[in-house]
Design a protein around this nucleic acid. Sequence first.
DNA 1: CCCCTTACTGAGTACTTAATAAGTAGTAAG
DNA 2: CTTACTACTTATTAAGTACTCAGTAAGGGG
Lengths: 185, 185
Amino acid sequence: MARGDRARLPAEQRRRQIIESATALVAERGFWGLSMQDVADDCGLTVPGLLHHVGSKDGLLVAVLEHRDAEDRRALGDPPPEGLRELCAALVRRNATQPEIVRLFAVLAAESLAPDHPAHAYFAARQQGVLDALATLAKGVSPRPETLARQIVATMDGLQLQWLRDPSGTDLVAMWTAAEKVLFG
Amino acid sequence: MARGDRARLPAEQRRRQIIESATALVAERGFWGLSMQDVADDCGLTVPGLLHHVGSKDGLLVAVLEHRDAEDRRALGDPPPEGLRELCAALVRRNATQPEIVRLFAVLAAESLAPDHPAHAYFAARQQGVLDALATLAKGVSPRPETLARQIVATMDGLQLQWLRDPSGTDLVAMWTAAEKVLFG
DNA sequence: CCCCTTACTGAGTACTTAATAAGTAGTAAG
DNA sequence: CTTACTACTTATTAAGTACTCAGTAAGGGG
């Protein structure tokens, strides 16, 4: 972000900057393609300076994911949306405003399929959690809530990938609105 | 695959072995996480020996993707499936038998969202090609074939991701059969 | 003013990365 | 048998990797 920052920042503030920077870089290159040097440069400090805050490369990834979790809880928990359909629509609307975050998850979700990836367990748990939550909400809507939940998640993930590949020629919200009509009777 | 191969293989055969090995390793680690050393070790030769066949790391990726394209054409072009629905079903059935290949594409598709990724152009073209082909086939089925095509691709990609994350607890074909009923009236 | 915590640097470690250059050895054609 | 070819090796380069250790200086509380 800022270069020539010779300033000594308070830990919390520096950490926020680091996480922001790492989020963008991981979204671009994935975790295997990320270099601590790049993050450090981006924050205007040295690699050991960076390590002072996050401990290790794995620690950096953990920090990024934890920050995203907290942010998501804050954004979606504030007004707890009632119906399944409205919740999904809200989710898509929110995602449409932050392609970088969506891409972070898309890239990490694929990369973390490998069992030795540092975020493997995180994404396994996350997928199960999301599916369970949606299935619970779907109980009133569909006779097979488990199946509907899987279809919803699949469609959202797939549409997001198409959108990320061609952001200007694709309207995520519009695509979801169309899909919505198919998914819910 | 085989270690202790001190044998000198004919170029074509060695190339096949290299591509096979690289396919598995890229599926696991992505392109940024791939090391020529690992591929060379896996084939029982040195890194320069490997480079003799593929020229460069980018060249290796190109070889892998070209091989996949050829293989796919062979597998799906042989009995040209007639209807859109039957084509999709055939595709899913085939994919269900080769999780490694599906994962290769899932990982590379996400990684290659970055414009400077060596497979960026390849995947952009591929996505457009698939969407166009499906949209053409969908003309007889839906009033908005473009939209249906996007939904089909999205659902397939998304379901595959869920399946890859939990292969034993998930039946890809069954999930598609259920999705099929929703997508096609 | 001093002191102590701590954000941060500089130097260095041990290793891996892709790639090149030059030479060796197996093989096949004439 | 010899010549041409090529699959492959060893040696090397230049750069990049995460990470450690010891020290410096900024900032706040006493």
